[in-house]
Computed example of a mutant assay.
Amino acid sequence: MILRLIFGFSFAVALLNPSLSAAQELSISLGDEGSISARTVQLFALVTVLSLVPGLAIMVTCFPFLVTVLSILRQAIGLQQSPPNMLIVSLALFLTYFIMEPVFTTAWVDGVGPLTRNEIDVERAFSLALEPFRSFMAGRLDPDTFYAMAELRPDIEAVDPTPDAPLSVLVPSFMLSEISRAFQIGFLIYLPFLIIDLVVAAILMSMGMMMVPPAVVALPFKLAFFVVADGWALIAGSLVRSYF
């Protein structure tokens, strides 16, 4: 199942599958005009697709939203390096896989699977594999952000925020909408921890302890509050439910 999370890798490998017989002929006869250059282009295409897989996983999934919220949560608690960045990114990746699994499955079944079985060509497979991601992005983006991005492209006619919109407008609109929504949720997450900071600062000021940093005293209380409230489960559950 994890292979579906990086289905782009298998998709790229599948690009070369229909040409295996041509490769065998090439090994027998190198005099075929254009065959060597065709294989070179395919090799460069494979390397390019593999290098773009991590970026594609970030651009067309919920990963930007999740990792932004988790990073804001760490800042709100007052911890600089705990949890470490690797742990936050790993948690965001697995939550992304949990949320996006139906989309990955649909893309694999409709696009990559038939391509590996030589039932459809590459262009048709790419279009079918991209349709679930188009629907996912169109259902999450902010219409105002979409129209604002579309206005920046005078060469594009009037389009609506639908799955059929051009990817050059759909993808950045989706990413900006996800980041904006993440900051909105981050503001709500910050509020209870800000109240704890204000209360601790007011108590220290009333006691005349002006030289004691309020952040140092408030940190244990914020950690205790977060643990008692089972904060990680609440945050993760709320983030996942926002997509269903």
Results as ranks from 00 to 15, higher is better:
F226D: 08
N17Y: 15
L176C: 02
I203V: 12
V103F: 07
M86Y: 04
I6K: 02
L239C: 06
Q42W: 07
G111M: 02
F11K: 07
I120A: 05
R74L: 11
N17D: 11
D230G: 13
P132H: 14
I235P: 01
F174C: 05
F146K: 08
L219E: 03
S177F: 03
L198P: 02
V13N: 06
R134D: 14
P143C: 14
I2Q: 06
Y147E: 13
P220N: 14
L130G: 07
V109L: 08
N118S: 05
D155M: 12
L115A: 11
L91K: 09
S35M: 02
S90C: 05
P172Y: 12
G231Q: 05
S127N: 15
L167E: 13
F133D: 02
S71Q: 12
V41T: 11
A138Q: 04
F44T: 10
P84Y: 03
F226L: 10
R124L: 12
P114A: 07
F65A: 09
M205Q: 13
A150L: 15
M205T: 10
I36N: 06
A23E: 04
D32N: 05
P166T: 08
W108N: 03
A202D: 13
V89C: 03
V122H: 11
S127K: 15
F44C: 03
T116G: 04
E119C: 06
L46W: 03
P84R: 10
D144I: 03
L15M: 12
I6R: 09
A45F: 06
D144E: 13
M1Y: 02
A107P: 00
M100G: 07
A76N: 12
R181K: 05
F104N: 01
V69F: 02
G78C: 04
L223R: 06
W232I: 13
S29V: 10
V199L: 14
P83E: 02
V227R: 08
I179M: 13
V122E: 06
Q80D: 12
V199H: 10
F174I: 07
L15W: 03
V212Y: 07
F94H: 01
R140K: 07
F9H: 05
L176R: 10
S127C: 09
V112F: 03
I203T: 04
S21C: 00
C62S: 09
F11L: 11
D155T: 05
K222P: 01
G208L: 04
I203H: 02
P83V: 05
I203F: 08
